[in-house]
């Protein structure tokens, strides 16, 4: 089982920018777009986004990949607004959505997950005064990433066991042993961490 994050390893001006800065620009830009209802501003925003893709060295295929999963929705939305409001409005709605998604996609493409997590975890330290524990949040995040392949393994094993018995069609026969095994594992992991004296009341 593989989980591959979407970012690329190329180096460009945008790849090298500080992720916190990119995140702030992304949120600022998208917030701005949400309150704008002028067609020419939204077209400008879309052109800027497409130019940024070029600056980062991505081909048009990348841009298409980002939009591919939602283009049917875009088409339906466009036709819908064409009938119920004006053609300007349908262009505004669709183009705004496209530039929102494309800019956010550019951020994911140019920033490795480790950097994003690092940046966001820095914000947790700011939340400390509100009762958040950055160390515990980090523990939960890394445990989650570790649990995903373990769960995949359990699914595989249970499936094989049921196949051997010839009862693979039954959903309940699959899920019950899976859930019981995962709950057992969580108990084991918790006691393993406690046995190593991980700070319990930090």
């Amino acid at each position: 089982m593989k989980i591959i994050a979407d970012h690329t390893l190329d180096t460009s001006f945008i790849h090298g920018l500080w992720p916190g800065f990119k995140l702030t620009v992304l949120f600022g830009f998208n917030l701005f777009l949400f309150f704008i209802n002028r067609l020419y501003i939204i077209i400008t925003a879309l052109v800027i986004t497409l130019l940024l893709y070029k600056v980062a060295g991505f081909s048009s295929i990348r841009i298409w990949q980002k939009v591919r999963s939602v283009w049917v929705f875009f088409a339906v939305l466009f036709v819908f607004h064409l009938f119920f409001s004006s053609w300007q409005n349908s262009l505004i709605v669709v183009l705004r959505l496209a530039s929102l998604l494309l800019l956010a996609g550019l951020f994911t493409l140019t920033t490795p997950s480790s950097q994003i997590m690092e940046t966001l975890e820095r914000y947790f330290i700011g939340l400390q005064s509100f009762g958040a524990h950055p160390a515990k949040i980090s523990l939960a995040l890394s445990l989650t990433l570790r649990f995903i392949p373990i769960l995949g393994q359990i699914i595989h094993e249970v499936h094989e066991a049921q196949q051997a018995r010839g009862s693979e069609g039954n959903i309940m026969n699959m899920t019950m042993p899976m859930i019981i095994r995962t709950l057992k594992i969580s108990e084991d992991v918790a006691s393993a961490i406690e046995a190593r004296c991980y700070d319990n009341d930090a």
């Binding site: 515990k136 523990l139 939960a140 995040l141 445990l143 989650t144 990433l145 570790r146 649990f147 995903i148 373990i150 769960l151 995949g152 699914i155 995962t182 709950l183 594992i185 969580s186 108990e187 992991v189 918790a190 961490i193 406690e194 991980y198 319990n200």
Partner: peptide, 17 residues
């Protein structure tokens, strides 16, 4: 407690899986 954190992580992983 640690047990809470582990079960939180477990269910986050279940949703992901």
């Amino acid at each position: 407690t640690i047990k809470d954190i582990v079960s939180i992580a477990l269910f986050a992983a279940i949703i992901a899986t």
